[in-house]
């Protein structure tokens, strides 16, 4: 899987100054909306919040993978952000989260794209990668850390 095929450098942002789960999801939706032509920020936000309602996407070790299914999107869009300070996200291990990889998948090929999510999780479980991500000081550094 090539992360570059759905993550662009301008969807990568480090040290975002948000302090709550809600604000974080809003911020992610905002970034994503700029890259999906026929969907509004609100629709993306709803998709992500729908998923969080079922249960937190915090997978432990300070990492979360918010995701959602978009009815009219042509292709998958990913957003990678880190936050200035860790925020409470009701994660699986109850630890606060500071690395967020969000993935919005188009309706049709849901299955194929969800697999990318699993692959991202696999990549983030690598200690070196996650260390580089947390240390990244610019957006470009952050992008390099995940795509290397």
């Amino acid at each position: 899987m090539d992360i570059k095929s759905f993550l662009t450098p301008d969807c990568t942002e480090c040290a975002v100054p948000v302090s709550s789960k809600k604000r974080l999801i809003e911020h992610v939706s905002q970034i994503a909306a700029q890259h999906v032509s026929n969907l509004t920020e609100q629709e993306i936000l709803d998709a992500l919040l729908n998923r969080e309602r079922v249960g937190s996407t915090g997978i432990g070790n300070g990492i979360a993978l918010p995701h959602g299914r978009l009815p009219n999107a042509g292709q998958p869009v990913a957003v990678l952000v880190t936050t200035e300070s860790p925020i409470e996200f009701d994660a699986i291990d109850n630890q606060p989260v500071n690395v967020f990889f969000a993935l919005l998948v188009p309706d049709g090929e849901c299955n194929a794209h969800l697999k990318s999510l699993a692959a991202v999780a696999q990549k983030l479980s690598d200690k070196q990668t996650i260390k580089k991500i947390r240390c990244a000081e610019t957006n470009q550094e952050l992008y390099n850390a995940i795509t290397e």
């Binding site: 998709a47 309602r53 079922v54 249960g55 997978i59 959602g68 299914r69």
Partner: peptide
């Protein structure tokens, strides 16, 4: 992922 056992199947379907 872990989800709440009380969440609805239709929500799971929409995601």
């Amino acid at each position: 992922f872990e989800i709440s056992p009380e969440s609805l199947m239709q929500d799971l379907q929409s995601v």
